[in-house]
Design a protein around this nucleic acid. Structure first.
Lengths: 312, 312
DNA sequence: GCTTCACTTAAGATATACTTAAGTGATCAT
DNA sequence: ATGATCACTTAAGTATATCTTAAGTGAAGC
């Protein structure tokens, strides 16, 4: 029972055998003969000083010690494999895997994807469902777009444009509600996805910033911001839209911001990637492209007055 | 750039080199010559098709790919080592590592330890600070004692005695407050450590179970149950004590439960160990001993009336 | 009772990993 | 400047670990 780690090939053989619960299948997976695998397991058991498998008639089963060893070993090899893949990814300048929340994916990335593909036909973009606690190496993520107020240590973190929110609606609806005051009788749509912000950026805050004493609560509520914007696009009502999610619709005339005022959210989208990978070709291309795309709609922000929200 | 994992000895060499940021020190750690280590790193780089280290004058530094690989590889080997240790632990029938919360450790385990050592001199007990989310393999834990209402999948889980709570105090204090009603004017001590229970097991619930309309809020509060019991032992006041934490003090006369009634908590302490290790000699010994110890004080529970708490 | 299946064992072959020894280039002390 | 030292590299030879082939065991299934 030596103190140090046993031969790693033996551990790998054990891992495969424990996964398949069969020496023959494990040998097949590792492209060796069953004899070699049997030998490896035996050598591992000698190192440990105890059996890891109980040999039955035509099968094997893990002993208690084997059962204790198997999950950690599986984890260990999974981690090694993930690390290896993430190192290999540096070799690959063709693919780029991006993760973002559903709203940003639907309202920012998706509508602009065609243009990115035009500008960088050599890069194959992949999207990964947004994960709350994501591990770049484990999940094969190159870049994450995240909304919030802070970066991460050990991460390259580029803040994108300041996010404000402002009432947006279809041009038809805007004609019926020409002034901020008239909004008190308009159909309001609520976006619950930014309720976590502090100070809050909801309708009550917006009316307060405009000097109007009105705290609306009735109207359709959406837990995802893109669905709220979709509702506004359908003419259902007026929504307090986040910059990144509405500027393209505004630029192209599907939505309007009739009052020329917005309130700041204090948060912003960030471009995140592991430290050291910010200079990989496809990541540079994607970042530059995002910044250029954001630049295309800054004229919308410049035409706005960003108000402060007074304390309640 | 092969798809499969590179030679594992090369990965181990890389791990050591990345930790030491020196091939020479890594070679020393692995008890090989620097030449061997250099060769391993080179072979790994050939497998990857890219450099992992930048060779400087008298030092090395990780490339971006190396920096991406290093943490996952370190994790991976840590996991393999943890698994190996936990398998080795099955060979060892001498030591037993137990984790429990601070209250159980202070009020149940510590006062009875001497007796366990007498009964099982061959077993060396070790205690590990309680960790919220503990990993038996990683932290070298054999047995955990946890308070709650549920077991864990993949775990051997033995429920210990039902836990009730009842007012406990020094005999001197009991003389001054002979009836439950008189407790409304007694100094009450609050144990906040079981606030998470549902239904709650606080003073308000106890008075309600006794048919007394009284919801006390004033008095010293403790976030750890053992400190509340210590306060009661010091004669500071009356505390609603959990069975496991007070039976020994009651059995030995330091505390009394003058009213003969208790209310159930709906939760209990559990004896947890990884599936498969419940038959290891020292774990059997510890479990049997705990059950026997609990049995020694069941007469206290048998003398009690366990009340239900009516809904509010 | 014979075949088959899954693992084991033993002997020889081969690939892997290690050591020794010589070499490179840059730093550092004189 | 000059030579010593340090950290890594390279090459050749060697040892060891790992594989394959081939024969063997014992239980299950036809």
């Amino acid at each position: 029972m030596s103190d140090r780690l046993p031969p790693l090939t033996a551990l790998r053989a054990f891992d495969a055998a424990a996964r398949h619960m069969s020496f023959a299948k494990a040998a097949d997976e590792l492209s060796v003969t069953p004899a070699a695998l049997s030998f490896q397991i035996k050598s591992l058991e000698e190192h440990l000083g105890a059996q890891l498998f109980r040999r039955l008639n035509r099968a094997v089963e893990l002993t208690e010690a084997g059962a204790a060893l198997a999950p950690s070993v599986a984890d260990g090899f999974a981690s090694l494999a993930a690390g290896w893949r993430s190192a290999q990814r540096f070799q690959d300048e063709q693919t780029l895997t991006v993760t973002a929340g559903p709203a940003f994916t639907a309202k920012w990335l998706a509508p602009r994807l065609y243009e990115f593909a035009q500008a960088h036909p050599e890069i194959e973009l992949r999207f990964s469902a947004s994960l709350r606690k994501m591990d770049f190496a484990r999940d094969g993520i190159d870049v994450a777009i995240r909304f919030g107020s802070e970066g991460d240590p050990g991460m390259y973190s580029l803040p994108l444009a300041d996010e404000w929110v402002a009432p947006v609606m279809t041009p038809a609806l805007a004609a019926r509600f020409p002034t901020p005051e008239s909004l008190t009788s308009a159909p309001l749509v609520f976006d619950d996805s930014i309720n976590f912000l502090n100070p809050p950026c909801d309708w009550t805050a917006w009316f307060r910033a405009m000097g109007i004493d009105f705290a609306p609560h009735h109207g359709p509520r959406f837990s995802q911001a893109d669905h709220a914007v979709d509702a506004a696009l359908a003419g259902v009502g007026v929504v307090l839209g986040r910059r990144a999610l509405v500027v393209k619709d505004i630029d192209e005339g599907r939505l309007v911001m009739p009052y020329g005022t917005a309130i700041p959210t204090g948060a912003r989208f960030r471009f995140l990637c592991p430290d050291g990978s910010e200079n990989r070709a496809q990541i540079v291309a994607f970042r530059e492209w995002m910044l250029a795309e954001i630049d295309k709609t800054t004229h919308i922000t410049e035409a706005l007055t960003i108000l402060n929200v007074p304390g309640s």
